[in-house]
């Protein structure tokens, strides 16, 4: 160890440090100063990407506390999942700022609370994540916890989950 440290110290400091990102062609991703989100590859935006037909009427939006309640539920679901040892590794590599926004939009759109969904569809947004059934179940538990904290009635929670459950076909990939 001592010899190694000495050898490192004796290296001539003449060469400029190598920019390894440049050497390997890694593009630096800069967060948008306005939204705080990282850029994504272009895709066609459509409410159809939300993966479910929205509820009609305002009962569900009301049960979820309107846009404010839905935003707290979406944010809380993401935060619980980031802190969840079962899921942290999947969430680690993704842009949480963008996820919180698109998840809110998706929930808000499906609950008919007056939003459009601008995110990608479920198949392409979960491609290469390697989500398994146990991960999906853990996410459902976190969403249930977030809905409980917002005092959403259980029947309304399940009605909402009935829109999300069929998405398992696109989300669970292994």
């Amino acid at each position: 160890m001592l010899l190694l440290a000495a050898a490192l110290l004796m290296q001539p400091a003449t060469e400029p440090p190598v920019d390894w990102d440049k050497e390997f062609g890694v593009e630096e991703r800069v967060r948008d100063p306005a939204t705080g989100e990282l850029p994504v590859d272009p895709y066609v935006q459509s409410n159809a990407n939300a993966g479910a037909t929205p509820f009609t009427g305002s009962a569900m939006a009301t049960a979820f506390g309107g846009q404010d309640g839905i935003r707290r539920i979406a944010n809380r679901t993401v935060e619980l999942s980031q802190a969840d040892p079962r899921l942290a590794a999947i969430f680690q590599a993704h842009d949480m700022v963008r996820l919180k926004r698109t998840l809110f939009e998706q929930f808000c759109y499906i609950l008919n609370a007056g939003c459009d969904y601008s995110g990608r569809d479920m198949a392409s947004s979960h491609k290469d994540m390697g989500v398994r059934m146990r991960d999906m179940n853990a996410l459902v538990e976190n969403l249930q916890a977030a809905m409980r904290e917002e005092k959403v009635g259980f029947a309304a929670q399940n009605r909402f989950l009935s829109k999300l459950a069929p998405m398992s076909r696109d989300v669970i990939t292994r």
């Binding site: 079962r86 590794a89 059934m133 146990r134």
Partner: peptide, 16 residues
């Protein structure tokens, strides 16, 4: 390493 961190045990107890 993410892959290692998310490997649960065989008795995973992950059913709803």
């Amino acid at each position: 390493t993410p892959a290692a961190a998310q490997e649960a045990s065989l008795v995973d107890g992950g059913k709803l």
